[in-house]
């Protein structure tokens, strides 16, 4: 899994934010459109795309997209790239 693809998958869950503004450093919970439904969509996206179950607390404990990426990566099954 690589960060660029993760950012694309993340950005696909947003409706208002300009995709070009999303970077590994983006503090996603500060986005105007961030809501509990966005959080649920991110959790579902990570399950679909990476076969990883993240919890609400993983979202809370991540400030930036990089943080969340690292959290997902650390939970991946061994061998899944």
């Amino acid at each position: 899994m690589n960060i660029q693809e993760f950012i694309e998958n993340f950005a696909a869950q947003l409706d208002e934010t300009d995709e070009a503004l999303i970077t590994p450093e983006t503090q996603f919970k500060q986005l105007d459109e961030w809501s509990s439904l966005t959080a649920l969509s991110i959790i579902a996206m990570v399950d679909d795309e990476y076969d990883v179950i993240v919890k609400g607390n993983d979202i809370i404990n991540s400030d930036t997209i990089q943080d969340l990426f690292d959290a997902v990566k650390s939970k991946r099954k061994p061998g899944a790239d």
Binding site: S36, L40, I43, K55, G56, N57, I60
Partner: peptide, 8 residues
């Protein structure tokens, strides 16, 4: 189950 946090 953690999808919704305890705070939420």
């Amino acid at each position: 189950r953690g999808t919704i946090t305890e705070e939420q």
